[in-house]
Design a binder for these strands. Structure first.
Lengths: 118, 118
DNA sequence: TAAGTGTACTAATAGTAGTAATACAGTTGA
DNA sequence: TCAACTGTATTACTACTATTAGTACACTTA
C-alpha cells in the first residue's frame, strides 16, 4: 500500500504523509476507511512505529484523517478536509493582509491584483 | 545605535536585522544614509564581523539596504523598499491562489473573503 | 599605497529534526 | 475479565543544519 524510497533524501515520515495524501485525494481510500495500524505498517516497512505515528499526526493536523485512541486512524470526510484547508488558507490570507497594510497596500489593492489574475 | 540582548534566544544576526528594519521604517535612518561598517559595528557589539555581514545580506535580500563593495552599506530608497515588499507579497498571493484552486476555492471566493475583512 | 570597506571560505559549536526504544493507556471481542 | 489489538507519551540517540567565528581575499578612496 505504501512504498518507501530509502534513497530519497526526504524524511521517511514525509514520504508516508505524501503517499497517504495521494491515496486519499485520488479516492483510493474512502471516507471513514480504516488506515493500517501504526504497528502493522511500521513492521511492513521495517521502520519504527513512531515514524508512522508522526506521519499520522501530521495527516490529522492537516485534516486528512482522524484518529481514535485504541481503535485506529480513519480517513476524514471530504467535507471536513476541505473545510480544514479552507480555514488554513483564510488564516494565511489574514496574515498577508496585515503585512500588506504595513507597506501601505490596502485590501482594495489586493482585490485589484487578484482581479488581474483572472 | 544597535543593542543586543544576549539573554534573548533569537540569533544575534536576526536581532541586528530587526533593529535596522525598525530604524529604517521609522525614518531614523534616511534614504542613502551610510550604515556603520561591518567591522566597526562588530567591534562595538563585541561580536564577529561575519555576523553583521549576515544581517546586512538579509537586509539587502529584503530590499532594506543596498551594498557597495569597498564603500559600505546604505539605506535603500523608500520606493525601492516598498516595491520589493510588494513583489514579495504578490508572489505569495499567487501561490495562495493556486492552493485555493486546488480545493475548489476560486479567486472570486477569495475576493469575497477579503471584502468581509474590511 | 595604506587604511578603510564588503565578501568568500572554512571550521567549531550549538541547536534542531528525524528516528528509534520503551512504557503507558484506551478498545474490543472471546 | 483479559488477551491482543489499537493510539500516545517520554526519552534518548544521531545526523543534519544554523549560528557564530577565524581568516584571507578583493574593492575603493584619499
Amino acid at each position: 500500500m505504501i512504498i518507501l524510497d530509502l534513497k530519497d533524501a526526504r524524511p521517511l515520515y514525509e514520504q508516508v504523509v505524501d503517499r497517504f495524501k495521494h491515496l486519499i485525494l485520488c479516492g483510493v481510500l474512502q471516507e471513514d476507511e480504516k488506515l493500517p495500524s501504526v504497528r502493522n505498517l511500521a513492521m511492513e516497512l521495517s521502520i519504527n512505529p513512531n515514524t508512522i505515528q508522526k506521519a499520522f499526526t501530521e495527516l490529522e493536523r492537516e485534516g486528512f484523517i482522524y484518529s481514535v485512541k485504541g481503535r485506529g486512524n480513519f480517513v476524514a470526510s471530504n467535507g471536513i478536509l476541505i473545510e480544514h484547508k479552507k480555514k488554513e488558507l483564510e488564516q494565511q490570507i489574514e496574515e498577508l493582509v496585515k503585512e500588506a497594510e504595513g507597506i501601505g497596500m490596502s485590501i482594495e489593492d489586493i482585490i485589484e491584483f487578484l482581479t488581474k489574475l483572472k
